[in-house]
């Protein structure tokens, strides 16, 4: 099975296609792949606990590793202790480590 890092730069308030990207992540995980889902830019907006989209992200977090760009969080005033359950802050260095990992496929959305 494969390894993937899916980078989500869009948010569900602006882009209906976010659901398809989350479904892709879940589908890959269901197929036995190891999936990291890295939120960046406005992609971190649904990671704020209490937002209307938090349910879908929490659900995704049960099957894949959901990471949120520390800089993008800070830029938007989202505190690390105010994240949807299952979402972990991560640095850009952590994203690079994932992208450069042998055999891991990286997709931007």
């Amino acid at each position: 099975m494969g390894k993937y890092v899916l980078i989500e730069s869009r948010d569900p308030f602006d882009s209906a296609d976010c659901k398809n990207f989350r479904d892709l992540a879940s589908g890959l995980a269901k197929g036995g792949n190891e999936v990291a889902f890295f939120l960046t830019q406005n992609g971190v907006l649904p990671a704020r606990r209490g937002c209307a989209a938090e349910g879908s992200l929490a659900e995704l977090g049960r099957s894949v590793s959901v990471l949120a760009d520390e800089f993008a969080l800070r830029e938007r005033g989202i505190d690390a202790d105010a994240l949807v359950e299952g979402v972990r802050p991560a640095s850009i260095d952590a994203l690079i480590a994932l992208i450069m990992e042998d055999g891991r496929k990286a997709l931007w959305h």
Partner: peptide
């Protein structure tokens, strides 16, 4: 179908979106 996309990915070394 959408459900077949994950298995399609396995046939490739890289996937660009």
């Amino acid at each position: 179908g959408r459900a077949q996309i994950p298995s399609l990915f396995q046939r490739f070394d890289q996937v660009w979106h």
